[in-house]
Amino acid sequence: MRRVVVGATGTPGGMTALHRAAAEARARDAELWAVLAWQPPGGELGSRNGCGPSALAEHRAAAVERLRDVLDTAFGTAGPGVALAGLTVHGTPGAALVNAARDPEDLLVVGTGPRTVFRRLVRPSVARHCLAHAACPVLAVPPSPLQTELEAVHRRNFWRRPLDLRELSA
């Protein structure tokens, strides 16, 4: 069975990618695989320094619940209209997605978000990792224009800049 693999993060950009992946799965008559990667607090170092098996099981259970919430928020009770499989993976998001979409017939869908200089330094780009390492085609979905406008409003509020009402009528 052909598969469309997508990261499930619950962010606005992730929701855009999830909906695009569902549309691609319907168009290709493929299964939709939603992948949520998780790590214990502190990353791998944290799991070596104090997270026992019971704590790891709790983190995995929380990841499973998070994935259920993300899919329920994205598709509701109607579902995506194709066969849906949810997968939680202990690891980094880029590696988890590349490993899940290992067949050349698969399609890997990733969201691309705004990549400020600070974000590049703190967190590596999942989309870039997938584009560099995937064995299948990768569809990089840009954020919704509404998300871009929302982030501009958040920045304006953060810096306490007044809103120009003429911008709203455009």
Rank of each mutant, 00 (worst) to 15 (best):
R2M: 12
R2W: 02
V6I: 07
G7W: 02
G7A: 06
A8T: 08
T9D: 14
G10R: 07
T11Q: 05
G13D: 14
G13H: 06
G14H: 08
G14N: 08
G14V: 05
M15Y: 07
H19C: 00
R20E: 09
A21K: 03
A22E: 08
A22V: 08
A23Q: 14
E24C: 05
A25T: 14
R28P: 13
D29N: 14
A30H: 09
E31C: 03
L32C: 10
L32M: 05
L32E: 07
L36T: 13
L36E: 11
A37Y: 03
W38S: 08
P40Y: 02
L45V: 13
R48Y: 09
G50T: 04
G50D: 11
G50W: 00
C51R: 10
G52M: 00
G52I: 02
P53M: 00
P53I: 01
S54T: 10
S54Q: 13
S54P: 00
S54K: 05
S54C: 00
L56D: 08
E58F: 00
R60N: 10
R60T: 08
A61I: 01
A61C: 03
A63P: 06
V64Q: 12
E65S: 15
E65I: 03
R68F: 10
D69V: 11
V70K: 09
V70R: 06
T73R: 10
T73D: 13
T73Q: 13
T73G: 10
A74H: 09
F75V: 04
G76R: 03
T77I: 01
T77F: 00
A78Y: 05
G79E: 07
P80S: 12
G81E: 08
A83N: 07
G86H: 07
G86M: 02
G86K: 04
L87V: 14
L87M: 11
L87G: 09
T88Y: 00
V89H: 11
V89F: 00
H90Q: 13
G91W: 01
G94F: 03
A95V: 13
A96C: 09
V98R: 08
N99K: 13
A100N: 09
A101Q: 08
A101G: 15
A101P: 06
D103S: 11
P104L: 01
P104W: 02
D106A: 06
L108N: 13
L108C: 13
V109D: 14
G113K: 02
P114S: 10
R115Y: 03
T116L: 01
R120V: 04
L121K: 10
V122H: 07
R123C: 05
S125M: 01
V126L: 01
A127R: 03
A127W: 01
R128A: 14
H129M: 01
H129T: 11
A134F: 01
A135H: 15
L139F: 09
L139A: 15
A140H: 12
V141N: 08
V141M: 07
P142C: 01
P143Y: 01
P143K: 02
S144K: 02
Q147H: 11
T148A: 09
E149I: 04
L150K: 09
E151K: 02
E151A: 09
A152K: 09
V153C: 05
R155I: 04
R155A: 15
R155L: 11
R155C: 05
R156Q: 15
R156L: 11
N157W: 10
F158V: 12
R161E: 15
R161T: 15
P162Y: 07
P162F: 03
D164G: 08
R166Y: 07
R166F: 01
R166M: 03
E167W: 01
E167L: 07
A170M: 09
